[in-house]
Design a binder for these strands. Structure first.
Lengths: 191, 191
DNA sequence: TCCTTAAATTGACCGTGGTCATTTAATAGT
DNA sequence: ACTATTAAATGACCACGGTCAATTTAAGGA
């Protein structure tokens, strides 16, 4: 039987996404309520959940889309040649990821794929982050002893740690990027 | 005037904590409802929130207490002399931290202190984790080029990353500890 | 064009976390 | 003991995410 997807399905979904994105821009992601989204989109509440498993699933889309834009920019940039350069280049991405505490929490929750064999936009973004950094490190200027993807995983782990400590009442004497610099120098240029 | 804290305050708080702990043991942390806790403790719902800011604050106490027990054990143990030994010794702690997806999420959220100048049990546990690993690395057998606390921060960052990837549908071909081993060898014995 | 069937939409309803004005109980002063 | 005062406890109530049986709309076949 297999009927083709209706036009209105795509329209409704698009309306929900743009309403959500607009409200997130206006009041932040955390303050965005499903009720507000469906009202602005002009649909019933139940319709929302016919299109997204839950609120987090929408947030995955919205936040993932924002990260995707920044990753597109990173794709264009030429490989930074120093630790300092790497950190500077990643600043916009890290800022976006920590724009709200709530956003960072969602990102962490979705950084691994959400469910079995479901790989969402945020997990995708993490994958792209990894491959971009891997590309930067490909030439082997840093840590030629281990494969570049592993080096990149370390960069990501340290970046997440540096971001997480942003929300810590201790460790506030050092900025996120200063902390990350300390980590990456130890990771990329040991000895 | 500054009145002293009443006895029943401590009693009520203790009842709530033990009810919560018991229910978490029986049905898991995620499935534990406030309503069930207050019913078992024999108090009204509002009382709960007079003692804990929110559900997470109780979870902070309960989960933090469990981690604390394991950290007490780690305090007694003698410093493991190899990467493999470090990982093995941390296994019970890492298991507890990932016993439930929900637990791991709460831990991440509370790993930095929750609020300004509020340092809860989970944040405390992270601090102890750090200082125990720092002590293990104190002799400078690994990474003598950087201070031991920084080495320990790296261990923690990689441990968190390894645990997080547990919940990822990708990266499932490698176990948590195998992944951590790969990270720590690169971190602790570079070159 | 009409009928059948599957997909999309609806909104009343529910579960659970969290609030707050009111009530109850303990403390300190006389 | 009695009263004033402050802390603790109460439970009706709200907010918001999420569910589902019932309804509407579109697609395909005669």
């Amino acid at each position: 039987m297999a009927r083709k997807i209706q036009q209105r399905t795509l329209q409704t979904r698009a309306k929900l996404l743009s309403a959500g994105d607009a409200l997130a821009s206006e009041h932040g992601f955390e303050a965005t309520r499903i009720e507000d989204i469906v009202q602005r989109a002009g649909v019933a509440k139940g319709t929302f959940f016919a299109h997204f498993r839950d609120k987090d699933a929408l947030m995955d889309q919205l936040i993932g889309a924002r990260l995707s834009v920044l990753l597109d920019a990173l794709d264009q940039v030429q490989a930074p040649g120093s630790v300092e350069g790497i950190i500077e280049t990643l600043v916009p991405l890290h800022n976006a990821m920590t724009s709200e505490r709530y956003v960072f929490d969602v990102i962490l929750r979705y950084s691994g794929a959400a469910g079995i064999s479901e790989i969402g936009p945020i997990a995708m973004a993490f994958g792209r982050y990894l491959s971009i950094v891997t590309k930067w490190l490909q030439d082997g200027a840093y840590r030629p002893d281990i494969p570049a993807p592993l080096v990149a995983e370390g960069v990501q782990a340290f970046a997440v740690q540096a971001m997480a400590l942003t929300y810590c009442s201790l460790h506030q004497e050092q900025s996120r990027d200063a902390r990350l610099r300390q980590y990456l120098e130890a990771w990329l240029t040991p000895g």
